[in-house]
Design a protein around this nucleic acid. Structure first.
Lengths: 231, 231
DNA sequence: CGAAACATTAACGATCCGGTAACGGTTGCT
DNA sequence: AGCAACCGTTACCGGATCGTTAATGTTTCG
């Protein structure tokens, strides 16, 4: 279940949102004040933040700035909720790094739709990817090929997940190492090749017709079932 | 410069947007109808689409669905522009996969802020260059000539990418060597000629009428489809 | 016209690159 | 401790690729 954070001093709105969000399957954690907002978010780890602009003590815009400056929170989606709807208000809100800006009173179902939008869309967070016979389940850490399970190791799984979440994109070895192995890990390029080799073996990914992982000479690898076979 | 596509039948709004977006440094490509929207987008490769909902022939919602279903366009950001602002309209728009929904009349600066929001997080340089029948895809490391794939090697690809990203500019051999081959590489000038030769062969780039890569005697090479043929 | 300067082209061989198998270190479980 | 799974490294191989060279065309200019 995904957690959504709310910072809002209006008690009634707080309760209304709690009710509606719970009905949609979210967990709501709320705070009535912007004091210690960063700590609050670090503790609760929400998937998204609903942020009032007019708050006692710390204005919402300040909080937004602080979040964007914080390395661990920087890309958390933020939706501003504000009674102020002038052009200038909206623009400053959005330019400060908010992902969306809704003017009160807003339609509840629109808010829900926009929340979904900002939480779901990233391919690399989707719990299950299903591409041309390969089913990658990030929650169970399982891979199924035409329905039957293929057991992968952790690195193999992460590598495949990274490639599958960017179908068609050619990923260079250095990119793969920093994203799959870790930015700080000191690992040779060829480790990627070997990992790909092992993946291909487990997937029965023959160099024939419909291949999943393609080598792109001089650049790297790509997951692309549609790519023409190299002749 | 980033391209933004607009599908909108209101001429006045089209011109207004063209004016404002150009002032912000975008290039606008517009179509008054939703017919062949997918082809239109495949050709122009915009970074984002502004889409009217009420269009003659094909409704915007249909276009949105078609885009999301198309593998090469699926994650293009879409902003709906609509005169209809009811809760149901907004929700269906967003749930169909649009990234944003603005109700006409909207604040121009808010639109600009939202455009930035949806474009910014992505890569800085245009991933696909499309010049006079040549389609260079830096993400897939592919080149298509009038739609059909031409397979290039790494150096050929980098050289062509460098030339195509500066159409009309004449690039000297030494410049090309340091930018394409690498500042430190010790390579003779002639290597460039040979690489250009192989490129031309693969592209069927005859020295006749519309030529892509031109030799500029004494200086170097340039990619320029508009250049008059040397007589 | 003829030579110099420069560009085009074909062919060759060195180098680079990716596939693969084998090795050994580490980790975690029994 | 013993064992197996996992993972990064290394080395070798074959083939693709690329820079060089030299011969051939083409343009420029005295």
């Amino acid at each position: 279940m995904r957690t959504i954070a709310l910072i809002e001093d209006d008690r009634d709105l707080q309760e209304l949102l709690r009710y509606r969000l719970q009905r949609e399957g979210y967990r709501l954690v709320a705070s009535g004040t912007g004091k210690d907002a960063v700590d609050f978010l670090l503790q609760t780890h929400p998937a998204l933040l609903l942020l009032d602009i007019m708050l006692p003590h710390t204005p919402g815009l300040e909080i937004c700035k602080a979040i964007r400056a914080h390395p661990r929170l920087a890309n958390m989606p933020i939706i501003f909720l504000s009674a102020r709807g002038s052009e200038a208000d909206r623009v400053t809100g959005l330019e400060l790094g908010a992902n969306d800006y809704l003017v009160k009173p807003f339609f509840m179902r629109e808010l829900l739709a926009r929340i979904k939008l900002h939480i779901l869309p990233r391919n690399d967070q989707e719990p299950v990817l299903n591409i041309s016979g390969l089913e990658l389940d990030r929650e169970r850490f399982e891979l199924r090929r035409n329905g039957e399970k293929v057991s992968l190791t952790a690195t193999e799984f992460r590598l495949l997940a990274f490639l599958m979440s960017r179908p068609g994109r050619v990923c260079g070895r250095s990119e793969l190492i920093s994203e799959v192995w870790g930015r700080d890990r000191d690992v040779a390029d060829r480790a990627v090749d070997v990992c790909v080799l092992r993946l291909r073996q487990k997937l029965n990914d023959a160099p024939e017709k419909p291949r999943w992982i393609h080598s792109v000479r001089g650049f790297g690898y790509t997951f692309d079932p549609d790519r023409a076979i190299q002749v």
